[in-house]
Amino acid sequence: MTADSNPTETQETAPVPPRRSFLTKFLSVVIGGVLVVFPFATGLAFFLDPLRSRRKQGEEEVAPEFEGFIKVTELEELPVSEEPHRYKVIDDRVDAWNMFLQQPVGTVYLLRSGEQDILAFNADCPHATCPVSFDSDRKLYQCPCHNSSFHPTGDIANPDSPAARGLDRLEVKIRNDNEVWIKFQNFLPGKAEQIPVT
């Protein structure tokens, strides 16, 4: 482009757009588009960052079969009973740039019905993730928000419950004959099937 790309033919004093300006118009629009789209697209790609799944750093080394499992308690502290016990799940918690070591990351209920038989439930209601608590009198888990209740087995107890599924059962493993390890996960609320939140 030279410094002067004006049409050279004589024109009226009235500002008439030059006729042979299609290329100029076309390029103006294209370049203008690039100019606006570039910063916006960069920002949008940045904005979509939360959709990426991140691998957790600084993970302690555990035996492969216990990967993803967290120790919650020991069998000695969990008597065989008809009533579930509530435990905090302690793990390293990542919050964007923060890493909080050994923080409560969730709550679980453990029900030990036999020597090695343990049922573990995430205490978040599968309807809208309100925290359920166990009502000893009624022998039911009760959700404080929308009145769902669940049997100790996790199944829905009240027919008019808005929950689409029973309480979320978590995998349990006994380690060293005494330690109770669970695979703590949160699941998408409102779905009939368990879909883990990654």
């Binding site: 002067d4 004006n6 008439v16 757009p17 118009k25 103006s28 370049i31 203008g32």
Partner: peptide
Amino acid sequence: PKAADTTFWPDQVFKDAVACLGVL
């Protein structure tokens, strides 16, 4: 004036766009 009159669009817009592209 060195040349005949024109309008902002498209002649000056084009020059402006090229300059902005240069900045980018």
